[in-house]
């Protein structure tokens, strides 16, 4: 087995394992990814990991692009695809099986009650994530005002959200934060 092959196997094993732990989002696993990538496998330096994490955070898309970049760093594009697939496939299979079962029992009382009970908790969780994100992002008054203004404009008007993200970026780039 060539060195590249064994790296791919390690990627597959590592991210399949991490995906099982991904309750509450992938970002909770970043410390473990750092430990594995830097200390255990020696794939990269700590600085490189921090850089890749910053790039992943700055990129559009699901909140898990750090996984893609670790795979890419280790084994190029095949590594990137493999890491992303292994991180998402196990939980996606679970989601698929639950979703098909869920729909089959749509008239069942337990299913209606479970759904009715989960929706308010889900809305509470989503609101809390907005709050936590704002608390981390908004270190200055201007940053806080960007958050509030964006929220109000998205809620009350039909302005395209990308314009507002761009406006936030422009204010930041001018050094006003």
């Amino acid at each position: 087995m060539s060195r590249e092959d064994s790296e791919l196997w390690t990627i597959a094993f590592t991210f399949s394992y991490l995906s099982m732990l991904a309750v509450g989002g992938v970002n909770a696993l970043v410390p473990e990814m750092h430990r594995l990538s830097v200390d255990v496998y020696g794939w990269m330096t700590s600085t490189r990991f921090t850089d890749l994490f910053a790039i992943a955070q700055a990129s559009p898309g699901p909140n898990m692009m750090i996984v893609t970049l670790i795979g890419w760093q280790v084994a190029g594009v095949p590594g990137a695809v493999l890491a992303t697939a292994c991180m998402t496939l196990p939980t996606s299979v679970a989601a698929f099986l639950v979703a098909t079962t869920w729909d089959r029992f749509r008239e069942a009382k337990w299913r209606i009650a479970t759904q009715s009970g989960l929706v308010p908790v889900a809305i509470g969780l989503f609101s809390a994530s907005a709050f936590v994100l704002a608390r981390h992002a908004d270190e200055t008054l201007v940053a806080f005002l960007i958050t509030i203004a964006t929220a109000a404009l998205v809620y009350y008007t039909k302005v395209h959200p990308l314009l507002l993200l761009g406006a936030g970026g422009a204010i930041g780039a001018m050094g006003l934060l």
């Binding site: 700055a58 989503f126 992002a137 958050t147 203004a149 809620y155 507002l164 936030g168």
Partner: peptide, 25 residues
């Protein structure tokens, strides 16, 4: 400037999530 811009985007993104949470609530 790229780093500063991303901080502004993050603040706006938090507002976008806030508005979506409000709509759902």
């Amino acid at each position: 400037a790229v780093h500063d811009a991303m901080r502004g985007v993050a603040s706006a993104a938090a507002g976008l999530i806030l508005a979506t949470a409000a709509k759902m609530a």
